[in-house]
């Protein structure tokens, strides 16, 4: 196991996992407490449409994905502010529509068919060094922005209406978060894939939730949990020779189940529910 650390690509995979954890731990915590998981799912799947469009137009697929996904985030934002009730349905349409559009574009592209599978699950073991720098910079931007705007972001996530009445630019802050989600997704697609991005956004905060009393705490603990999941997942992938995306996600789901069961068991014990007493 230790001998794996001797390989350059393995060390770089671990580092990628740690950097991606910072980005996902912070944004993911916000997404979870503000109930924006389906919105993030929609945006990240729509990114697939951007990749397809990139191939069709003959430009770099990730550049295509970047422009397209940020555009979708803007559309979602516009819909969110107007059609509050039916946002779930609209997200479903964007989710499926984005993927279908991507596949259509790729089928229309002459020449060879790219490996779409790698965009869904990525390959953390094959990350180019310049991409690592990009993830590092994104992480830095997110840390600075979220730290600087923390009171405002916390107020908007907790009670958007009250924040609006208090004079905060809630619409602008929502747009900022959606664009950050879009950028996060695109930067991480090549590394961990669309599916793993959503897993890294949602699983760590879900695991960290019972141990967090504040949003700040949730962000820090989620980042730590995410680092633990990716590192363990990469080692598992090496040991058992399985795809890294799957091993990270499945290990995360396992930890989530254990934590949730333990949490339910503890709260049952503390509450002294009647059926336990009368036995």
């Amino acid at each position: 196991m230790i001998e794996a650390l001797g390989y350059e690509f393995f060390r770089s995979a671990l580092l990628t996992g740690l950097l991606a954890s910072i980005v996902c731990g912070i944004i993911g915590s916000y997404v979870v407490v503000k109930h924006m998981i389906s919105i993030s799912g929609g945006i990240s799947h729509a990114a697939f449409g951007g990749i397809g469009l990139g191939y069709l137009l003959g430009i770099d697929p990730l550049t295509g994905a970047f422009i397209f996904t940020v555009g979708v985030a803007g559309v979602v934002w516009g819909l969110m502010e107007r059609a509050k009730q039916h946002i779930d349905t609209l997200i479903g349409a964007i989710w499926a529509g984005g993927m279908a559009f991507g596949i259509l574009c790729i089928s229309l592209t002459p020449g060879y068919t790219p490996d779409l599978f790698s965009y869904l699950f990525g390959n953390i073991l094959l990350v180019p060094p310049d991409h690592l720098v990009l993830i590092f910079l994104l992480g830095l931007v997110i840390i600075v922005l979220v730290t600087a705007l923390y009171p405002a972001l916390q107020a908007v996530a907790f009670d958007q209406e009250y924040a609006t009445i208090s004079g905060l630019p809630t619409r602008g802050l929502n747009l900022l978060i959606l664009v950050l989600i879009a950028i996060t997704v695109v930067v991480l697609i090549q590394v961990v894939g669309i599916i793993l991005v959503i897993a890294l956004l949602t699983l760590p905060p879900a695991i960290a939730r019972p141990f967090s009393r504040t949003l700040r705490g949730l962000m820090v603990i989620s980042t730590g949990v995410s680092m633990m999941l990716t590192t363990t997942g990469i080692f598992l992938s090496w040991i058992f020779d399985i795809p890294s995306g799957s091993s990270i996600i499945l290990f995360g789901v396992l930890v989530y189940l254990v934590v949730t069961c333990a949490h339910i068991f503890c709260s049952l014990k503390n509450r002294n529910v009647p059926f336990l007493i009368h036995k």
């Binding site: 407490v33 009171p151 916390q154 907790f158 009250y162 939730r209 009393r213 949003l215």
Partner: peptide
Amino acid sequence: FPITVREMVLTG
């Protein structure tokens, strides 16, 4: 929502 009473009152 993960927030303490004091932090929540602060949002006022």
